[in-house]
Amino acid sequence: MTEAPTPVEHAAPTLRLRGVGRRFGGLVAVRDVDLDVAHGERRAILGPNGAGKTTLFNVIAGDLSVSTGTVELFGRDVTRMPARKRARLGLARTYQQSRMLLGLSVEDSIYLSILGVGDGHLRPVTLPRKDRELRERAREAARRAAIDHKLSELVGNLSHGEHRQVAVAMALASEPKLLMLDEPASGLSRGERQLLTDLLLGLDPEITLVVIEHDMDIALRVAERVTMMHDGRVVVEGTPEEIRANQLVHDLYLGRHHYAADE
């Protein structure tokens, strides 16, 4: 299992990476990653800080280009496709350092998320019927992320935990086919974590979910398969049970010095 041979699906997987690498000058952040995430699957990516999880996310979303390898989304090679086009294919993501639209209200932020994957980005007029429909969808997404009591508040006035909720609402609102969450639980209170876990467990089964999460509890409850990264590589892949029982995972998370000494 430590070799992690990925099973080859017959139908095109939602996400397929082959030999993906990314270097920053002399630093290799991600090397030779193969990854297949099937339609509707819930996948967690674990790994200690610096393992390359967020870089991998950025490469998948198109915020960074690959140094080597190919990225396929929904059966299409998107290796050279810019981020905005990948978003319009149905990929929505959140960011680890919250990248929020601080000068806009919660409702406007979610509205922009819906508008982004639709038409009429440049429409210089308001259309009452169309906008009412978009705003209703925005408020619905806010309800699902339990942030609907702050709709007209400026995002810049919200707390860190609320930013996470808005980010999740924005991602959900665009009705993505592939939802990628980068540490959605970090900085959340216990109650907020429970809320997030419930939200993820109740997610439409048609949505494929890839989540980076340090909270093992959330990650292992939500995920069907777990990919463990270390030093830019995939080191273990398996079910939550397998991951829980895996000695390497324990070493990486609980005794990094011990692991390093072993090498």
């Binding site: 639209l101 601080l102 000068g103 429409r123 308001t126």
Partner: peptide, 27 residues
């Protein structure tokens, strides 16, 4: 008026974080 239209709102989003707006699908 323009500030309340899709064009104006997305422009304000770009003001706040152009990278985020790109990943939301905007040019």
């Amino acid at each position: 008026y323009l500030a309340r239209t899709p064009f104006g709102l997305s422009l304000q989003g770009i003001r706040d974080d152009p990278v985020r707006m790109t990943s939301l699908g905007y040019t």
